[in-house]
Computed example of a mutant assay.
Amino acid sequence: MTMTSVTSNQVGFKWDAVKGATSYNIYRYYAKIATVTINSYLSNPTLKPDSSYIFNVSAVNAAGESAWSEKFTIRTNKEEA
């Protein structure tokens, strides 16, 4: 995973595309929060400042869903003064 953006209330990341995948499921704290069709994700701007969030990603195609990626943690920035 590569972080693409981090603010006080939003995070973005990307990962290597999986051959044959038609979509990807995004999990935060082990609950599915989104399905995307490209190998990147930008969260809603509703995260708490200076907080850590755990994410996993899985690939999906007609055969089903892959195993989840290793978990990774992203910490939001502190709120601007």
Rank of each mutant, 00 (worst) to 15 (best):
D50W: 04
R28F: 02
F13A: 04
T37W: 11
S58V: 00
A67T: 05
A21S: 12
V11G: 07
S40Y: 14
R28V: 03
K19G: 12
K32L: 04
V6P: 01
A21Y: 10
A81Y: 01
I54G: 00
P49T: 05
T73Y: 03
P49I: 03
K48S: 12
S23W: 14
T46H: 10
N25I: 05
E70F: 02
F13M: 03
P45S: 14
A81E: 04
T4L: 09
S8Q: 14
L47G: 00
A59K: 05
T76C: 08
W68S: 01
K14Q: 15
K48G: 01
D50N: 15
N25E: 13
A59I: 04
V60I: 07
S52W: 01
K19Q: 15
N61C: 05
M3Y: 06
F55E: 08
N61G: 05
E80W: 04
A81K: 01
T2G: 02
A17T: 14
I54K: 07
I74N: 09
A63H: 02
V57D: 04
I54Y: 08
S69G: 02
M1D: 06
S40I: 06
Q10N: 07
P49H: 07
I38N: 09
F72N: 05
S40G: 08
A63D: 09
T22Q: 15
R28H: 07
N25G: 11
G20T: 14
L47F: 00
Y29S: 14
G20Y: 15
Y41C: 02
D16P: 04
W68F: 01
V18A: 10
P49K: 06
A59R: 06
N25Q: 14
S51R: 01
S66H: 02
A59V: 02
K14I: 09
T4Y: 07
G12T: 11
S58C: 00
F55Y: 15
T35M: 12
N25A: 10
Q10H: 02
I74E: 12
W15M: 11
G12H: 12
V11R: 08
F72T: 03
A81Q: 00
N61T: 08
G64W: 03
Q10L: 05
K14P: 01
A67Y: 05
N77L: 13
D16H: 12
K71W: 04
Y29N: 15
Y27I: 08
V60D: 00
G20V: 14
T37L: 09
A17Y: 11
T35N: 13
G20I: 14
Y53S: 03
A62V: 10
N9Y: 09
E79W: 05
S43M: 13
E80K: 09
A31P: 00
S5E: 13
A21W: 10
T46K: 12
T46L: 12
K19Y: 15
D16Y: 12
I54S: 05
F13V: 03
Y29F: 13
A81F: 00
E65R: 04
